[in-house]
Design a protein around this nucleic acid. Structure first.
Length: 805
RNA sequence: GGGCGGUUAGCUCAGCUGGGAGAGCGCCGGCUCGACAAGCCGGAGGUCACUGGUUCGACCCCAGUACCGCCCACCA
């Protein structure tokens, strides 16, 4: 046997064995209480990043732990079709080939996408396998599966029947690069250096002028009004008057609206409903025309007259020239402000008026709000619930249509008479006039519209499958913060509406893994660290352990140190197993504890078991991993194994070896959810292995050794005193024996110099005496605290006495 | 403009309902002890961001300040 644990080969072998023997497979008819988690479906085009790996590690701990505890476990894998991301990929390819999707055509584009995905998509499941994630890979689902699309259609028809679906012509975030609308949540605001132009608009009656500010002079062509705040004395008299829009010389009304900020710029706002969200709202409320001068391609359109076809930048220049020539350019200053950009393509978002499908969310939000308020869905950490609540309480209509081709095409059909038929399957004829000349809506659904169904559509809903009956609702949803609104809140709303149940009762929002320098991990910044590489270098067990240690509630910088710690732990475990196994001979595991250290390690194992149950229950993964580290290193290896080492070689002492094997078994079981591979590998080398560790029972509470913890604490304390002082205290019996076995061989300080320890004890005694001498402390502090202080004082005095001899 | 989080050892981070400041790594000293030098033993190193308050007692609770990060929002 190698002295150094090498995860290479070992891990892959066990991954294949577990999956091959069907141990990942969920059988709804198997015994045990169901426990299920739906893996947040990664993008089908994506690569496993550190966030995925962390999230999968925490979920796998829960899954493996429950599996060992006899639950009927399902961990559901699958992919999201990631409509807009896939478009970005394919369209980039097309661009490189000198063409675009419009030239290619819809059918060919979709066909090409499928082909591309077959070849390059869906690699994350293999990456998860390498992490040891015990998903039921045989149940992989895809949001573009025919069954899944049927569920999506059922959902849409259901919303329509409820009367919550409508089409509207409103201003939306338009991405000129992707040629589609995107949701508010997918717009990222970034500061941009621009110029703020102040332009003078003459009053129509020639009595003067009013000045407005804009960063986009080209939109002046779309102005339909000038607005001021109703309380603004500077302009009060002008309201009701008319101003003349530069360049196009159009007369537009001057109106009053409270949404105008009188302190910004000149305090007067040009109203361009076609190209600004606020202006759109004001325009609607004042019944203003909606004039569009920029097209879906981001270029000036035919309404821009002689500027049609120009880029906005060119149009800006032409307008500025005009303003200069007519002495209406009052000011131009540099200006930094935040501008929306498309999350996917990074293009500047263009607010445009387009016709889209919307879902009214007001009724859907209510049960989700209740569920958070009454705790039937619990967030960890709990403050994330507030974030979700705020959003739900200010819910806005959901624009669910996207002008893309890759996705579930909206099941709405139009007839020549202007009727719309919404149905789960393609209708024969128009529901209203019977016309058979039907054309289907060109748009597809927002990606999140289909992922909102994930926890139950993957189980076969709307069919009442056995899986759906058994595994739904799921238990836990674990994900990152950035998709609380996009996904988590929507699953809650939709789940309640369609299944009359919240899709899960616990939501874990795990930490964001930042690059070591504190920046976001990203390929483009060059700050990404790939889980694949970490696994390759240190092994999956070490990676899992390290990620768990990083999974505390706040965001954390990726630190290789935690992975190293995991590797050390795996190696340590491997070696202590080697110590026990090479001495075991033909001994069988048998719990026959006799000496103090044997009873004590059983007490430690049991106490840690209880601790772990609490940590896993509360989703405190870092604390659980830490408890395992110290159990293995400090308790099992440095104390227990050192103490029994002399006895292991004694051929007469069968009991110590049997007990060592039995305690090792327990240690392996406790470690398994975190480090499945190395534990299974060692487990397989133990004598009489029938079942795999992955399905071995979780150790049961054992009160027999409860008293022994205290006994060894005493030994440890005494030994620590020993090491510090180098002077023998009064030891007898077990304490003396353990001292001889563990402390003495390690002790390096020669007998003698106890000065430093005596100093320390004197300081402690002075501190305790000070506290107990404080009347108010003795009177007001809780009795047990005072009592504890008295005991400490007594102990310090005894120790001091022992040392001073 | 709102909201949330952070500031603890050289580094990355723990520290639960107030009661002797912790871990890992790094650093220093000592161990060629038959599981492990990717090891073992010992040690140094901290005004718990700052100010004030509550309390017998504050890293912890309260108020405020500074800096850092994230989220939400219709700043032309």
């Amino acid at each position: 046997m190698d002295t150094l644990y090498n995860p290479r080969g070992v891990e892959e072998r066990w991954q294949q064995t577990w999956e091959g023997e069907g141990l990942y497979h969920a059988d709804p008819d198997a015994p045990g209480e169901p426990y299920s988690i739906a893996l947040p479906p990664p993008n089908v085009t994506g690569n496993l990043h550190m966030g995925h790996a962390l999230n999968a590690s925490t979920q796998d701990v829960l899954i493996r732990w429950h599996r060992m505890r006899g639950f009927n476990v399902l961990w559901q894998p699958g992919y999201d079709h990631a409509s807009i991301s896939v478009h970005a990929v394919i369209e980039r390819q097309l661009l490189a080939e000198g063409t675009n999707r419009f030239e290619l055509g819809r059918e060919a584009f979709v066909e090409r996408t499928w082909r591309w995905l077959e070849q390059y998509g869906g690699i994350i499941m293999d990456q998860l396998r390498k992490l040891g994630a015990s998903l039921d890979y045989s149940r992989e689902r895809f949001t573009m599966d025919p069954e899944y699309i049927r569920a999506v259609y059922r959902f849409f028809v259901h919303l329509h029947e409820r009367g919550w679906v409508y089409k509207d012509n409103r201003i939306v975030n338009w991405c000129p690069g992707c040629r589609t609308s995107v949701s508010d949540l997918e717009v990222a605001y970034r500061d941009v250096d621009d110029a703020l132009t102040t332009a003078r608009y003459p009053l129509a009656d020639g009595s003067g002028s009013i000045s407005v500010a804009t960063v986009r002079p080209a939109t002046i062509l779309g102005d339909v009004a000038v607005a001021v705040h109703p309380e603004d004395d500077r302009y009060r008299d002008l309201v009701g008057n008319e101003a003349v829009v530069p360049y196009v010389e159009r007369r537009v009304p001057i109106i009053a609206d409270e949404r105008v900020d009188p302190s910004f710029g000149t305090g007067a706002l040009k109203i361009t409903p076609g190209h600004d969200a606020l202006d759109f709202e004001i325009g609607r409320d004042h019944d203003l025309p909606e004039l569009t001068v920029i097209g879906l391609d981001g270029l000036m359109n035919q309404n821009a007259g002689d500027l049609a076809g120009l880029t906005q930048q060119r149009a800006d220049e032409r307008i500025l020239d005009w303003l200069r020539e007519h002495d209406q350019l009052e000011q131009r200053e540099s200006y930094r402000h935040s501008v929306g950009h498309c999350d996917r393509s990074k293009d500047r978002i263009e607010p445009l008026i387009t016709e889209q499908w919307y879902v009214d969310m007001t009724e859907l939000a209510k049960p989700a709000i209740d569920a958070i308020r009454n705790g039937s869905v619990k967030f960890t950490p709990s403050n994330q619930a507030t974030v979700a609540l705020d959003w739900l309480e200010n819910i806005r209509p959901w624009n669910v249509s996207r002008q893309l081709w890759w996705g579930q095409r909206i099941p709405a059909w139009y007839c020549p008479n202007g009727h719309t038929t919404i149905a789960e399957t393609e209708p024969e004829a128009c529901a209203e006039c019977g016309s058979t000349e039907l054309t289907q809506d060109e748009d597809v659904f927002d990606t999140w519209f289909s992922s909102a169904l994930w926890p139950f559509a993957t189980l076969g809903w709307p069919e009442q499958t056995r899986e759906y009956e058994v595994y739904y609702p799921t238990d836990v949803l674990s994900t990152a913060r950035d998709i609380i609104f996009l996904w988590v809140a929507r699953m809650m709303m939709v789940g309640q509406e369609l299944t009359a149940s919240m899709p899960f009762h616990d939501v874990i929002i795990h930490s964001l893994v930042l690059a070591p320098d504190g920046r976001r991990m990203s390929k483009s910044l060059g700050t990404g660290i790939e889980p694949d590489e970490v696994i390759e270098e240190h092994g999956a067990d070490a990676t899992r352990y390290g990620l768990l240690k990083m999974s505390s509630t706040q965001d954390v910088r990726f630190s290789p140190g935690f992975i190293e710690e995991g590797r050390k732990l795996a190696n340590k475990l491997w070696n202590v197993a080697r110590l026990i196994l090479t001495n075991a001979g033909d001994t069988r595991p048998a719990l026959e504890p006799r000496d103090l250290e044997e009873r004590w390690i059983l007490a430690r194992l049991d106490a840690t078991r209880a601790q772990l149950e609490e940590h896993w229950d509360r989703f405190e993964f870092a604390a659980g991993a830490n408890a395992l580290y110290h159990l293995t290193f400090d308790d099992f290896c440095d104390w227990y194994a050192e103490a029994i080492k002399p006895r292991l070689q004694d051929p007469e002492d069968v009991a110590v070896r049997g007990t060592a094997l039995a305690t090792l078994e327990r240690l392996l079981a406790l470690l398994h959810p975190v480090m499945p591979h190395v534990t299974e590998e060692i487990w397989s080398q133990l004598p009489d292995r029938e079942a795999r560790l992955i399905v071995a029972p979780w150790p049961q509470p054992d009160g027999r050794f409860a008293g022994d913890l205290h006994a060894l604490d005493r030994v440890q304390e005494t030994a620590a005193l020993f090491r510090r002082s180098g002077v023998a205290a009064n030891l007898d019996g077990d304490e003396r024996r353990i001292f001889e076995a563990v402390v003495k061989p390690q002790r390096v300080k020669a007998d003698g110099d106890a000065g430093a320890e005596i100093e320390r004890l004197r300081r402690e005694i002075a501190r305790a005496e000070g506290m107990l001498g404080n009347e108010r402390f003795v009177e007001r502090a809780p009795a047990d605290v005072v009592e504890a202080e008295r005991e400490k004082l007594a102990r310090y005095r005894r120790e001091l006495e022992a040392l001073s001899g």
